[in-house]
């Protein structure tokens, strides 16, 4: 077989996986400070995808312009969810918060089903099928844009965490909440920030989904699972690692889908998930194992 096909599959996988990466960063932030496994992340992404879809279909708004509305709206929804659902139980441990996240997921799925119907939707723009040719490789424009969004999203979050005092407080609280409280950081403050950021990233991933995939109200769960795999690959509390984990997952899926089948791609990605958890639970891209979790 020609070497080009390997390269083409690699590029597809990288572009594909970047989206898992954006979702994984959101999960990582929320888990980092609150130890909440926010299983509804994927469903939030689908909700945001619907937002972008309807803005385009009803008002003809370009999906890349819709980012300006969908991301801030998701951020606000994130703050609302935290205040309404998680604020009181944030201290109660992982099981209650996991149940709440699960309930929220089921509620949103069924709400979307009633309001938007179960029909599969896809956002079709004039440039949806446009491809660039680079060194003999065909690159889908919308997929390339997903990758660009992932890079911008990751860079934005990284800058926030590294350069602002609030971002440093988020990192401090992820490392040790009690020590963070002793310097005057309140848990609710950092929790609100991370939830807002996590949902903002879900909004970005939603726009990315809308431009590249067909989706229905129940597509979110599998997406959320994939994000969790990406997170396990990349390592908790490691923003760049989460993006890399997503990209790696995308590449694994891309190769196994081509050489085996689409069904096998899922089998293999879940197997990789379990193998990483068994043999390198701190993640493949984690530098310092002692400091995480």
């Amino acid at each position: 077989m020609h070497i080009d096909i390997y390269l083409q599959l690699l590029i597809n996988g990288i572009l594909f996986g970047a989206m898992y990466g954006i979702a994984a960063i959101g999960l990582s932030l929320i888990f980092g400070t609150m130890r909440i496994v926010f299983i509804a992340q994927g469903t939030m992404i689908i909700l945001a995808a619907y937002g972008s879809f309807w803005l385009f279909n009803l008002w003809g708004m370009d999906p890349y312009v819709s980012i300006l509305f969908v991301v801030p709206a998701s951020l606000i929804v994130g703050i609302g969810f935290y205040q309404a659902l998680f604020r009181k139980v944030a201290k109660a441990g992982q099981f209650p918060t996991l149940l709440i996240a699960f309930g929220l997921m089921a509620l949103l799925e069924n709400l979307m089903f009633v309001v938007f119907t179960g029909n599969s939707r896809a956002l079709q723009t004039s440039y949806s099928t446009y491809t660039l040719t680079l060194l003999g490789m065909k690159i889908s424009f919308v997929r390339l844009m997903v990758f660009v969004m992932a890079i911008i999203g990751t860079a934005g979050v990284t800058l926030f965490l590294k350069k602002t005092l609030l971002g440093k407080a988020v990192r401090a609280a992820s490392e040790n909440l009690e020590y963070a409280m002793l310097v005057g950081i309140t848990p609710h403050q950092v929790n609100t920030v991370t939830f807002a950021l996590g949902m903002g990233l879900a909004g970005l991933a939603g726009v990315a989904t809308a431009t590249t995939y067909a989706f229905d109200p129940f597509s979110g769960f599998v997406f959320g699972l994939k994000a969790m795999i990406a997170l396990a690959l990349g390592g908790m509390g490691n923003v760049a690692g989460a993006l890399l984990g997503g990209i790696l997952l995308g590449v694994v899926e891309s190769y196994s889908a081509f050489f085996l089948s689409g069904g096998w791609a899922d089998v293999i990605s879940y197997a990789v998930f379990l193998l990483v958890l068994m043999f390198k639970p701190e993640g493949l891209f984690s530098k310092d194992t002692s400091a995480k979790l």
Binding site: L165, K168, A169, R171, A172, E175, Y179, A180, V183, A291
Partner: peptide
């Protein structure tokens, strides 16, 4: 101390 943060970041916090 926050071991994954720098000296300066610890002080700022």
């Amino acid at each position: 101390l926050f071991s994954t943060l720098t000296v300066m970041e610890n002080l700022e916090l």
